[in-house]
Design a protein around this nucleic acid. Structure first.
Lengths: 338, 338
DNA sequence: CCTATTGTTTCAAACGTTTGCGAAATGAAT
DNA sequence: ATTCATTTCGCAAACGTTTGAAACAATAGG
């Protein structure tokens, strides 16, 4: 079925010279007769010769491919990260192969194994929510393939990391709500086994403590999807009508909260202020538009790729590097009372 | 830097047998002594042996990798397609390598060339908006690498295709507006060099003609981004106040239109009805939620992958297959007058 | 005429794996 | 003792490319 890419051997045969001469001619090696060089290069162009990267991979033990393992590509944040990775990788002559874990530990392990078989030059990974064992990452470490985590990182493994300052972002978000008059702010939190869940919660608590605002037993709710928010919020607000601010662990949950609030005929921002975390696309679609913390997906991807490339090209074995990106508060209507 | 994956040679050396014996032992070849087999398999497991797929690629001239070239991964539609592709591909033991054209013809050509070098087993492609030459696709065809187009396809090349019934979808959308009382419906159209732009426009026109509604010189506007809609719509509505329905070529443009309409203090759906095309994520975020045509991204991806795998595994050279997916009207608030 | 030098080309090995074929060893049958 | 079959294994080639070393030719210097 599949035809035949032109190879160095083909060219060699046609010109009655050896493959090694062709190889050298193509890369302008000084040893080669200018006339031979020209013949080879002309023919190569004419036949549309393209070097076989697989053969090169095998020979040079590098594939120029970076494996990216993420939970779900449909999340805006992850797709922006991918764009950032791809940009930097392409500029350095690398390609990326993407595998989704769909938030499943097993799929994640499978992906790691499969990519390890493919002579990947390095990994860029954001962990699945359900991952609580780390042997597959340790496996990567043992083999010596460079690996960079972003956003959701695994701290029992030696690897570079790129994260945003989740604590500070959460602090800023909460402080912003406090500054705008909120007295009873709840936090819709992510899973606390993930660093981002923990850190954002801590930033939230720090801001409350600093302003001596009370923390109730209902102040922190594990709730990080739109659906969960739609279900949880109406009942919660009924029971605790004094809630006047919501800080959600991500934008989608925040939008779910806004929709829920509207559904019980309360108003955002006049009754309750809402802040998200991500600055995703939907924050500009939402009504009112959502105040949020910019999570810098594209920059994160670029930084992750840069860290990885540096690691790939380095001979020394320097210790793990962690890059922490600054977050930024993006103010929109959902936190601006009229 | 990079360590050493365990190879068949390593195992052979340790057990003082030849690589070929190891290879056969690992795949339960009947020629091999059961005891040897056991030794090999045990050691392989112990050393965590993983076959080197690059070597296999080179030998068998297939990489078990599918190249996917899409305009932009951040678009919800494309990411759902990718998920569909990945699911089917993974089930068949394939992985996907993703390259974005960012709607640039040049980047698209580059990507094709690069992937051709990587012994890709097949391509799944959605063309960039700016692509009007097709030599790079013809190149793929000549070499004989299977190729499937989805959504935005190129008809000067022999290849399988998966598309939605754009004409019918557009017809349904427009008909829906007419049925709900619209008399002056405009169409925000995509680039007319793309099939989807053409077909959706034609479906729109067909519905208008069928109901004997007049078509004005301003009825069709080339406008397929949120930003363009935000800029275009207010002025357009000022000049033509009788417009009472908008059918946009995609959801994002529709949302832009809704925002624009609100900005001049008109109401959706009470003054103007709006319908999009895609059934993207944002159609449920928008206020009011957006009526739209489901473009079946996930199914499209699955179908594209299935067509490609069939082509890869087939020896005959059957003619190009086109799969047309049915669209579906998803009714939401943006087209339901109170 | 021999040696050294330079310019040009080829050889062979290597990367990891598979596989047709041949080889060695064993045992059984003649 | 010879032949034959069976069991088990290794050799070598192949995939496409690169690269150090060797080979060859031609020329110049002595």
């Amino acid at each position: 079925m599949k035809g035949h890419q032109v190879t160095i051997k083909d060219i060699a045969k046609i010109l009655h010279i050896s493959p090694s001469t062709v190889s050298r001619a193509l890369k302008d090696h000084p040893d080669i007769n200018p006339q031979t060089k020209k013949n080879v290069q002309d023919l190569a162009k004419k036949l549309n010769y393209k070097p076989n990267l697989v053969a090169l991979s095998l020979l040079q033990q590098e594939s120029k491919i970076i494996g990216v393992i993420i939970p779900e590509i449909i999340h805006y944040f992850f797709s922006t990260v991918i764009s950032g990775i791809e940009k930097v990788a392409n500029e350095a002559g690398y390609h990326i192969i993407i595998a989704q874990s769909n938030e499943s530990y097993y799929k994640e392990v499978e992906n790691v194994q499969a990519l390890l078989s493919s002579n990947i030059d390095g990994f860029i990974i954001s962990m699945a929510k359900t991952t609580m064992q780390f042997d597959h990452f340790k496996n990567i470490e043992e083999i010596g393939v460079p690996m960079v985590f972003f956003d959701r990182s695994c701290d029992v493994v030696n690897a570079d990391r790129v994260i945003v300052d989740d604590f500070d972002g959460a602090y800023k978000a909460t402080k912003h709500l406090i500054d705008n008059g909120c007295k009873n702010i709840i936090h819709l939190a992510g899973p606390l086994n993930l660093d981002i869940g923990k850190k954002r919660k801590e930033g939230y608590l720090a801001a409350l403590n600093e302003s001596n605002l009370p923390i109730h037993d209902y102040s922190i709710q594990i709730c990080d999807t739109k659906e969960q928010a739609l279900q949880l919020i109406p009942e919660l607000l009924r029971r605790h009508p004094l809630i006047d601010g919501i800080f959600a662990v991500n934008d989608l949950t925040a939008v779910g909260a806004i929709k829920a609030i509207k559904s019980i005929h309360k108003d955002v921002p006049n009754d309750i202020l809402v802040v998200g975390f991500e600055n995703s696309f939907i924050s500009q679609i939402s009504e009112p538009e959502l105040t949020t913390i910019d999570q810098k997906g594209f920059e994160m991807g670029q930084n992750a790729a840069r860290l990885l490339l540096k690691r790939i090209h380095s001979n020394e074995n320097y210790g793990p590097v962690t890059t922490i990106l600054n977050t930024e508060l993006v103010q929109r209507k959902s936190s601006m009372k009229n």
